[in-house]
């Protein structure tokens, strides 16, 4: 499937915009699900992200991968959404997340592993989930994360370690149950 006509989208051609949406909706919704608490939140982020993408399309200069640019738009939208929900800068729980107290949902055999992992990610605190997503799945370095989230590099590293530990625990317990 080839890339939709971006020039037509820029012009506001509704048909082209719909094609654009149809082309990217699946991947972008998966991204939104990873950052959001719930499916409803993810839908809100998706809606907001596409609207932003259509409005800021002129900012894409043609350099680099378009999907990479679009992912950035959605990641920023997701982060802003989380900040808005908290009504404060994204904060991080510095205490160890007591995974044992949580009862992770078991992996469903018939479901793709990603869907199960999304469920686990959604059980993580916002800060852990955000750093995990940014580092492991988006490939951002710690200095980049510290700049995006306004935290120190040390905090970013320590939070990532904790996030991974939590994620691993939840993953293991859900696989065994």
């Amino acid at each position: 499937m080839h890339l939709p006509d971006l020039t037509a989208c820029l012009r506001g051609d509704r048909l082209a915009q719909k094609q654009f949406f149809e082309h990217f909706k699946g991947k972008m919704f998966a991204l939104c699900l990873r950052y959001a608490h719930s499916r409803e939140d993810a839908e809100d982020i998706l809606q907001e992200g596409f609207v932003k993408a259509f409005r800021d399309l002129h900012q894409y200069t043609g350099e680099g991968n378009f999907e990479g640019w679009l992912r950035k738009v959605f990641v920023n939208t997701a982060l802003q959404h989380l900040k808005k929900q908290k009504k404060a800068p994204l904060t991080f729980e510095l205490n160890d997340y007591d995974v044992a107290e949580e009862s992770p949902e078991p992996f469903f055999a018939g479901e793709p592993p990603a869907r199960n992992m999304i469920r686990i990610l959604q059980q993580l605190p916002d800060g852990f989930r955000t750093i995990f997503n940014l580092h492991v799945l988006e490939g951002y370095s710690h200095p980049e994360i510290s700049e995006i989230l306004g935290i120190s590099v040390g905090t970013s590293k320590s939070q990532l370690l904790r996030a991974k530990a939590c994620f691993r625990k939840l993953l293991e317990s859900s696989l065994t149950s």
Binding site: R14, F21, G26, F29, E43, Q47
Partner: peptide
């Protein structure tokens, strides 16, 4: 696991986006 993973959003998502646009 997440490579090429896609999820389908709500059926009326495009209508919602269209409304906002």
């Amino acid at each position: 696991s997440f490579e090429d993973y896609e999820e389908t959003p709500a059926f009326d998502m495009w209508a919602r986006i269209e409304d906002e646009l």
